[in-house]
Nucleic acid binder design. Structure first.
Lengths: 347, 347
DNA sequence: TTGGCAATCTGTAACGTTTCAGTATATTGC
DNA sequence: GCAATATACTGAAACGTTACAGATTGCCAA
């Protein structure tokens, strides 16, 4: 009979990482029983269950991820899909921290899956799904008709989007209410007697572009102000581009007396452009800007800001994905974050 | 005889993900042969090898990560360990992109492992090593005597540090030459006839704190300038703290006429503090600051900046870890990035 | 002819887990 | 008193991969 000595035949060699087999040996039970006892299966005696769990805790047993994954297909991984060129810096940082906060006391790991400008945004998602690399996916830069959401919905893999879609399909999302933001901004500017407003839009094509533009337009007509078209600019563009275009705009006689800006970095450029044109913030023109960290007021006190909390977004998105994985109704995993009021510099 | 039909007995059910077994069936070979043919093992005939690889490519075979990991222990994962409270925002974003750039055409995934202020920084590293969750680790906020580096060195797990250690142990690292940075900054300020300089230091305890302080001190005595102590402040502190302390300092009659600042966010606060005290940048005081994105010059044109490229750091660190995993000599995987010269605002 | 050897290829076991189909013992119903 | 059933447990198989120990074939030297 073939009786080679395999490493594991000798259970006394203590320094290997404990497995179910180790636990089975220590408790005198079978590995099946141990496996079930650890997950509180009903057909295990109460005392046995406690005994197994005690021993497991004592020796610091942790299930082998590869074993679980191979057997069950469950990866215990959430993937965050990010564009390596267009994401806002603080977005990346904060959303990651938001996600990790939520998954910290779960067995989940977070993997970051990047894609670049040149690639089809569907590529990374397709990769994840085809290779079964994650139990859940978080995507950003969501579009009204988003092929990634559609794809994942078809394939039945849980995901959450940062931003809403508009395809008549239901899925978890977290969004900032950009319609409200743009509206509030316009009303605030109107309250300061600004009546000719320009909008620094989100990237064309993303869902919140539409929300922002609509909120802006609706509020404009509500307060009786007018729009100064500034369509050549969006927050995706380079600082230099935005700055130059803003300066051009501000040198025209029909220049705006107010700006609404969808991102802090763009706002820096807009302000630079305004000043390039020899105008003064707060006197000649007011700017309301979204920001995700408290730096615009250090930059110029005259700026008017609305805060968007990306860390919260990360947490909400993680909660949503985990909820879906856990079997919750996708429709119940949607959340919208209401903007703060417009905040002027305070002491 | 037990002849239940298992799913895989029927190899014609096409829509499952292909495995070695699928390839074996298609080529008429054994799974062992297929496995070896795919990794160019020498004992496989040239034609067989080509045939297998062709078929594999055609049907889009991708090795199952769980299978490989279970069998070999190789995870194909790199973990980036981050502090969730003290990392610089752009650091997180850029270093991640730098890493992903390098691992993009490898089988590696990047997982982000966070830890918070309250935790022992060793915790996440211990977790990674004990559970064998990664083939390689990248850590930041490196200390001269770093328990994490020591631990991983003992356990023999490949890693790279952002910043050097000083324990007489050799391991891969990437660092920015902060000694040179501080020196250049001082010399530049001296060239503008600034002679009473204050230093906004890195977090006390990190290796580059020492480098920065030394570079600052050595250059001070070289140019015959003097230091205005500002020890109560480091870049880890809150914006408000730094701002307040700076304002206090600038109201004293022995105030500095020059600052050297180790981070952009702190610089914003310092400038605010200077202005709180009623002084003017460029006239009463000059500030040289490191920055990792091009925004300080939008903030105040009078600022003098030195650029640190975190994306490069991420790439270098990833290359270093992969190199070590690949068997290279750790001592050969160290790199130091030289600061640009001090840059005033240019048009 | 035969023994040896190189060149190719193959089956089995094992990694750690969960699921399936049982088994053994005690308990219940009548 | 006996079958039916519930309770508590168990071994074997399988997920996809690689390593180990063989197996088969052809060829050459003796």
């Amino acid at each position: 009979m073939d009786r080679r000595v395999t490493k594991k035949d000798d259970e006394t060699s203590a320094k290997e990482r404990p497995t179910l087999k180790t636990l089975a040996f220590m408790t005198g039970l079978g590995v099946t029983t141990v496996s079930r006892a650890l997950k509180d299966a009903p057909e295990i005696g109460a005392e046995t269950r406690r005994r197994v769990q005690l021993v497991a805790k004592q020796i610091g047993y942790r299930p082998n991820r590869a074993g679980v994954r191979l057997r069950t297909g469950k990866t215990n991984v959430i993937s965050l899909v990010l564009n390596t060129e267009h994401e806002i810096m603080s977005f990346v940082s904060d959303i990651i921290y938001g996600v990790t906060e939520v998954i910290a006391d779960t067995p989940y790991h977070l993997i970051v899956t990047p894609y670049s400008r040149s690639q089809d945004p569907l590529d990374p998602v397709r990769y994840l799904v085809e290779t079964g690399s994650a139990d859940g996916v978080i995507i950003s830069r969501t579009q009204p008709n988003d092929p990634r959401a559609r794809y994942m919905l078809e394939r039945g893999i849980p995901f959450a989007t940062h931003g809403r879609t508009d395809m008549g399909l239901v899925h978890p999302y977290h969004d900032f209410d950009n319609y409200a933001f743009a509206g509030e901004a316009v009303r605030y500017l109107a309250g300061r007697s600004r009546s000719r407003l320009a909008l620094v839009t989100p990237p064309v094509g993303l869902t919140y572009y539409g929300h922002t533009v609509n909120g802006f337009a609706d509020a404009l007509s509500e307060v009786g102000a007018s729009e100064v078209p500034f369509n050549t600019v969006s927050i995706d563009q380079s600082i230099d581009q935005i700055r130059m275009r803003t300066a051009q705009l501000m040198r025209r006689k029909d220049r705006p007396d107010g700006f609404v800006s969808s991102a802090a970095a763009a706002t820096l450029a807009v302000v630079a452009g305004i000043e390039d044109a020899g105008l003064k913030l707060g006197r000649d023109v007011d700017v309301v800007s979204k920001q995700s960290s408290e730096l615009l007021h250090l930059f110029r006190r005259e700026l008017l800001v609305v805060n968007e909390n990306f860390r919260l977004a990360g947490s909400e998105l993680a909660r949503a994905v985990l909820g879906w994985i856990g079997g919750a109704d996708p429709g119940s995993l949607q959340s919208l974050s209401t903007p703060s009021e417009v905040l002027p510099y305070r002491g």
